[in-house]
């Protein structure tokens, strides 16, 4: 499976769920409505910048903070197909995979510096490889653990059979 899209870069570490989807919107459960507020704590125009199939590139410990599934839902319904970061907070990571919303892709810290905002990326999930078409560089993705890969291949935990 190869994913193609433009990357949106926010290189800060510890981008937390209060930034990804602020608390006042927790009462909203309509996915389209939530998507309008994605990343509002860091960029109020985020949802307008994103096209379907795009990627988000961020620093360490992306998604730390609360367990709100609103966070990956808002990102995914804006069009984000994968978040690329050196590390993820555990509940956010689970929510992305188990809900089948988007892919959390772990990369080396140095990858963050070498991909620029608005670069075009091609991501090969089977080969665990990111190809930055804009600068010609290639980067490795840390392979998914076996269970995580199975859940992703099923399309989410709902379809997974033990």
């Amino acid at each position: 499976m190869t994913l193609k899209g433009t990357v949106h870069k926010y290189s800060k570490d510890n981008i937390d769920t209060d930034v990804i989807l602020p608390g006042p919107y927790l009462k909203i459960h309509d996915h389209a409505e939530l998507s309008k507020h994605a990343m509002e704590g860091i960029d109020t125009n985020f949802s307008k910048k994103v096209s379907k199939g795009d990627f988000l590139l961020a620093g360490n410990n992306f998604g730390c903070g609360s367990s709100r599934e609103h966070a990956p839902i808002a990102l995914s319904h804006c069009g984000i197909n994968a978040v690329i970061a050196p590390s993820f907070a555990r509940i956010f990571y689970r929510n992305c995979v188990d809900g089948g919303y988007l892919l959390p892709l772990e990369v080396e810290k140095s990858t963050l510096e070498q991909i620029s905002d608005k670069d075009s990326l091609e991501i090969d999930i089977e080969k665990n490889e990111i190809h930055d078409v804009s600068n010609g560089k290639k980067f490795l993705i840390r392979p998914f653990p076996p269970l995580i890969k199975k859940i992703i291949d099923c399309g989410g935990l709902m379809y997974y059979k033990e």
Partner: peptide, 17 residues
């Protein structure tokens, strides 16, 4: 602590990974 999908799965099956 878990998100909505995990809680829904646990509520249905009584189990979670």
């Amino acid at each position: 602590g878990l998100g909505h999908t995990d809680i829904a799965y646990a509520m249905m099956h009584g189990r979670i990974w």
